[in-house]
Nucleic acid binder design. Structure first.
Length: 758
RNA sequence: GGGUCCAUAGCUCAGCUGGUUAGAGCGCUUCGUUCACAUCGAAGAGGUCAUAGGUUCGAGUCCUAUUGGACCCACCA
């Protein structure tokens, strides 16, 4: 044996040994209750980050522990297509070569992204192997596997048949730059300073950051308790604006904050979520003024008759301008008209931004929706009633709050990369659908189907199709395949969380397969708390909806690994820790243990660099204990008897002490693992092995006469320690195990977990 | 605005259902290298457990308030 443990030289070999042994694939044994974990699928084209390593470490501990207990243990690997994120990454690559997604028709773009993902795929898988993850690779899934897509589409159909799917105009978080909508939970808010304009508005003064939207205001709102405006409620007032005089009704709503600005607000249902709600409540018309490219659209005004030429000139001036450009011009015009009263330059507020950091423009867009009211109730109750237990317990509040506030789920994404919604529109019946397509000579043409088909053939349009904008009253049919010649398929894809929300079902072959029947529902779902609402809640929802049973019995939420400086890791801060470097230097076992010992309580924690080093030293300590033992065996020269009860009478006090401590350790490790106290378990083993076994017991027996007794006790203790430690530090323990001659169990990974000796 | 968590040794943190002298890793001091390991061993210094009340025979651990910090959700005309 080498003087020190060299992780780099043995890790790959050891993993291969496990994989070849078939230990990762459990036997389906109907007499035993299985233990199952689904790996939260990382982004297929991504790379592992420290959070992934922690996730792998925890799940691997649970799986290896149960496997050694003789329980059929299944850990299913997979990767996610990560729709928006991947597409943004891909488009960034396109930009480098001077291209954009508009240079592709939909199918070619999809194929290009597929190829891009395929080229980058495999890195994550390789890294998972490197981490020692004892995943059953024979059951590997990707969220765009044919079978997964089929199941996801069937679920959509079922939801529709149950009346839970509808199409509607809706105010969505639309990003004009990305050309797509974002779910509420995908939107970030950025603190920013913008001028707050106080403008004259009929008899009132109102404050707004967005004067450009005023042309499509449909009401004014005040707080019903506000005495200042009491007399105006219900009345119609005349408002002189930049495009002439309009009439506006004053409504009362308790949502209006009398203390903000002047206490009176203008309502623009088409471009503000809050106003949209208000509009629905008071049945106000919804009138958009900003188009999907983020430009002002005054088309509605041009058709008007008897308009003063000055106003028409203005409308033409604003038309087609980007929001910010238009705003600047309007502010000048307001000044000129004497309508601008004052500007508060120091007003700060938070503005919604998309994943790529662009401003969100709340917009009205036809969208596919899921009605969540009936779906969320049983999912909510499953946790309330303890059918699904959440650890740590205090995280449960987040779940309940989310469930209580969850509103209908906007399902469509204007992404190409994803599962295309299995709905088809018959061209002849839907002339009002707007389509964008790429002509054979590379031009993008946009227009209504009825007009486009006069100049182009349907085949041409189909071949170059980029996207459809379908009015909500369009007729459609469900089908996974084309229902006929005259049909066009919806170009929107499902929200990524719609497919990943069905992960427990699609990985196990729902609705009917031996795996599904045996392994569903799974045992534990282990993931970061930040996707409790995005992902965990959806899985419970779909699990209960489709099978009547929640997909797992327990949820364990680990904390976020922060950088060394205690802040979130981010590229812009330059504090991102690359796990590979730590693996190279200290070994996988040390990195896993270091992270595990940081995660007590499921709280966020700083990357525990010192602990990684400490556990590297520990792996070496363990190595040297074994080395000492093998030397001692050699020196003794004869076969050391296996430890069993017949030896009891010959034991010295120190033997009895170490054996007693070992028994206590087995008990406490089991108990701690049962309640997800990984750090506690790890530290107790560490303490025992280092301080009791190495520092004390080994020193005590160095000069003993009865070597056969103490060496027998030593070997027993070492073997048991290796077993206890194996789930935590699989590589070094297996490597040592392989070096100890004459064992009954060939591989440590499948060796029998210690039981408490009485 | 609503909510969660945190405040314990110089640093990073453990301390589960309240119970004798409060723990770990790193750092620090002193000593020790043929004899498993310097990625080591032995000994040691260092904390009025944020503050103020309260419950209790007993509180770092439970309750209330205050201060400071991290984060989540919602809203922001």
């Amino acid at each position: 044996m080498e003087k020190t443990f060299k992780p780099k030289e043995t890790e790959a070999k050891t993993y291969e040994l496990w994989e070849k042994s078939g230990a990762f694939t459990p036997n389906i044994d109907s007499s035993k209750k299985p233990y199952t974990i689904l790996l939260p699928p990382p982004n297929a084209s991504g790379k592992m980050h420290t959070g992934n390593v922690l996730m792998i470490a925890i799940e691997d501990i649970l799986i290896r522990w149960h496997r050694m207990k003789g329980i059929p243990s299944l850990w299913i690997p997979g990767t996610d297509h990560a729709g928006t994120e991947t597409q943004i990454t891909f488009e960034r690559e396109l930009k480098k070569i001077g291209k954009s997604r508009f240079d592709f028709d939909r199918n070619s773009l999809y194929e290009a992204i597929w190829k891009f993902v395929e080229d980058n795929k495999g890195l994550v898988d390789a890294q998972m192997r490197r981490m020692g993850a004892s995943l059953d690779w024979s059951r590997y899934r990707f969220t765009l596997d044919k079978q997964v897509v089929e199941t996801v589409c069937d679920t959509f159909k079922k939801l529709y048949d149950n009346g839970l799917v509808y199409r509607d105009d809706y105010i969505v978080n639309y990003c004009p730059v990305c050309g797509t909508t974002y779910a509420d939970i995908e939107v970030d808010y950025k603190e920013r300073s913008d001028p707050l304009y106080y403008m004259k508005y009929g008899p009132f003064t109102i404050a707004t950051v967005r004067p450009e939207s005023k042309f499509r205001d449909t009401a004014l709102a005040v707080n019903p308790k506000d005495k200042r405006y009491k007399d105006y409620i219900g009345r119609t007032v005349k408002v002189q604006g930049l495009l002439g005089e309009v009439e506006m009704t004053v409504i009362a709503d308790p949502e209006v904050d009398p203390k903000f600005g002047t206490g009176i607000m203008k309502v623009t249902p088409a471009h503000d979520p809050h106003d949209f709600e208000l509009g629905k409540k008071h049945t106000l018309p919804v009138m958009p003024i900003i188009d999907l490219n983020g430009r002002m659209d005054f088309g509605w005004f041009f058709g008007k008759k008897d308009v003063v030429p000055k106003y028409m000139e203005r409308a033409k001036k604003y038309h087609g301008k980007k929001v910010l450009e238009a705003r600047a011009i309007m502010v000048e015009d307001l000044k000129a008209e004497g309508l601008l009263i004052k500007v508060d330059e120091n007003y700060t507020h938070s503005v919604p931004v998309c994943k790529a950091g662009h401003d969100i423009e709340p917009t009205i867009l036809p969208n596919w929706f899921i009605r969540v009211e009936t779906l969320k109730k049983p999912a909510h109750e499953a946790v309330k009633d303890g059918e699904v237990k959440i650890y740590p317990k205090w995280r449960e509040v987040t779940y309940h709050r989310w469930m209580e506030n969850m509103h209908d789920w906007a399902l469509s994404r204007q992404n190409v990369w994803g599962i295309r919604i299995p709905v088809w529109y018959e061209v002849s019946k839907n002339p009002n659908i707007t389509a964008s397509f790429l002509t054979s000579d590379g031009k993008v043409i946009t227009g209504k189907l009825s007009e486009l088909l006069l100049a182009y053939s349907l085949e041409e349009l189909k071949a170059g199709l980029q996207r459809l904008m379908v009015p909500k009253e369009a007729t459609y049919v469900f089908s996974k395949e084309s229902p006929g010649k005259g049909f066009l398929q919806e170009t929107d894809t499902f929200d990524t969380w719609f497919s990943s929300g069905q992960w427990p079902l699609v990985t196990l072959g729902y609705p009917d397969s031996p795996d599904f029947n045996y392994f569903y529902p799974t045992s534990v779902l282990e993931t970061g708390w930040e996707i409790l609402s995005k992902w965990v809640s959806r899985m419970i929802m779909f699990g209960v909806y489709l099978t009547g049973k929640p997909p797992f019995q327990a949820v364990y939420l680990h904390g976020i690994v922060r950088a060394l400086d205690g802040r979130k890791m981010s590229k812009s801060l330059g504090n991102v820790i690359n796990p590979e470097e730590y693996i190279e230097e200290f070994g996988v076992d040390a990195l896993r243990m270091g992270l595990i010992s940081g995660t007590a309580n499921g709280k966020d924690f700083n990357f525990p660099r010192d602990k990684v080093i400490a556990y590297r030293n520990f792996a070496n300590k363990l190595w040297n204990i074994a080395r000492f033992m093998l030397f001692a065996f050699e020196k003794y020269g004869k076969d050391v008897p296996w430890y069993d009860t017949s030896l009891k009478k010959k034991l010295k006090p120190e033997d009895k002490t170490i054996l007693k401590e070992l028994s206590a350790l087995v008990k406490t490790v089991d108990r701690n693992l049962e309640s997800f106290r990984f750090a506690q378990a790890a530290e107790e083993i560490y303490d025992f092995v280092w301080h009791e076994l190495a520092d004390r017991y080994i020193e005590e027996i160095k000069n003993r006469e009865d070597q056969e007794v103490c060496l027998s006790v030593l070997r027993h203790t070492v073997l048991m320690s290796l077993k206890l430690l194996h789930p935590f530090m699989p590589f070094v323990t297996e490597e040592i195990w392989q070096k100890i001659p004459g064992k009954f169990e060939e591989l440590l990974i499948t060796a029998k977990w210690p039981e408490v000796q009485t």
